[in-house]
Computed example of a mutant assay.
Amino acid sequence: MTKLLSLAVLYVTLFSLSAISFGQAPNLGTASSFALFTANGAFSNTGASMVVGDIGTNAGAFGGFPSPGTVVGNIRLPASAEAAQAALDVVAAYNSLNTVVCNTTIIAELASQTLTPGVSCQPLTTANSLNGTLTLSGTGIYIIKLNGALTTATNSSILLTNGATADNVYFQVNGAVTLGTGSSFIGTILALDAVVLGTQASLEGRALSTAGAITLNNNRVNAATLAPDLTPTIELSQANFALAPDNERNFAVNVFELAGNPTSSGNVAMTITVPIGYTISFTNTLSTILISGGSTEPVAVDNTHWTVTNTDGRQISLIINAGQFIAAKATARLGFTMTRTTANSGSISSITVNVTNDASHSYDSNPFNNIYARIVSGL
């Protein structure tokens, strides 16, 4: 018995250490749609910079876009609700990384190092540099914490190998960031101070500052690959609807995030439509539901996180509540009830769920996988 108890304690201890050693992606909230943003600082550009993603500042002068620079996204200026919320979210995301536990200690010169997923830290208060190539190897989340400013040299770069992706890389920089001329940087930068992109430097990711100017000079910044991607499915194991009283079925809609990036809070929207001859209902107080013909145990649902915006009996439109979001690689599950009313016996038709197209890419970047249909039959 003592041996079994010791093994159990050892297992729990190892599991706990694993849980705290490997970081989770920080929740960027509404800032997830931004390629470049400062919570408190000027924003300027020189030359024909090209940015894919939202840009802006919450406090400071803004210039250089839409000319001479080009932006595929929104420009958010001080006094706008979007900039104010993004400022709060950037600071919260930066602060959330302060207590993340390190599992690897790195040196101030990042070049010639190869990092694997997890939390890597340069704990000394000193300037950091990248004079060559930093290699990130393996699938998973990378959190790289630098306790001082970061400067990259001319033509320096980051190399992704063995499944590493830009959307899973996060740098917390306790200071300013300067990307050198012609350098190529990958990942989301959360900086405490100014961010300067040298001439023709490129960034595949985001640069978000809590309090510092953002300066561009003929750069390329692409955050499109970092936007969330949602796709839905429908769970309804028993899809045959008989006459009353056996004419009611519970089902669930699952909305998956595929890209590894959390949605911005409070704006995920979708519509569920049932065929003519059926009705649909949604109860926003439910926390569990029994899927018809499925598990004998109720499954957990997130109905309390959603609000109905429109309904006509056959169709329900919903939006996620303020402060709620779908986390990276996570699933939102909602429970519904569908009732056969006037559908003919032998009829075959479909329920459909449609994640609303998101022009700003703040909660969904790919409209091609937003619709899912489930066949139902009237017995």
Rank of each mutant, 00 (worst) to 15 (best):
L136K: 08
A92V: 02
T135V: 15
N131S: 13
G138E: 01
L134C: 09
T105D: 10
A111G: 12
T126W: 05
R76Q: 13
T116C: 01
L130K: 03
T116W: 01
N98Y: 01
E82H: 13
L124I: 11
N95E: 13
N98P: 00
V71K: 04
S120T: 10
G132F: 09
I141Y: 09
S120F: 05
A108Q: 15
L115D: 09
S96G: 02
S96K: 07
P68Y: 10
L97S: 05
R76K: 14
G138Y: 00
Y142E: 11
S67N: 15
T125C: 09
P68V: 12
T125R: 11
N74D: 12
Q113M: 12
L77M: 14
Q122G: 10
G132W: 12
T116I: 13
G73R: 10
G69N: 09
A111F: 08
L88M: 02
P123C: 00
C121A: 13
A84L: 13
S80V: 01
G118Q: 05
T135L: 01
T125Q: 13
T114G: 11
I143L: 14
L146E: 11
T104A: 14
T139L: 04
V101T: 03
N131L: 11
A127I: 06
K145P: 11
P117F: 00
G73D: 06
N103C: 09
A111M: 08
I75L: 14
T114N: 12
P123R: 00
N128Q: 05
Y94M: 06
L136F: 02
P78W: 06
L134K: 10
N131F: 01
T114F: 08
S67Y: 13
I106G: 04
A86E: 01
A84Y: 04
C102L: 04
N128W: 01
S96A: 10
A111R: 01
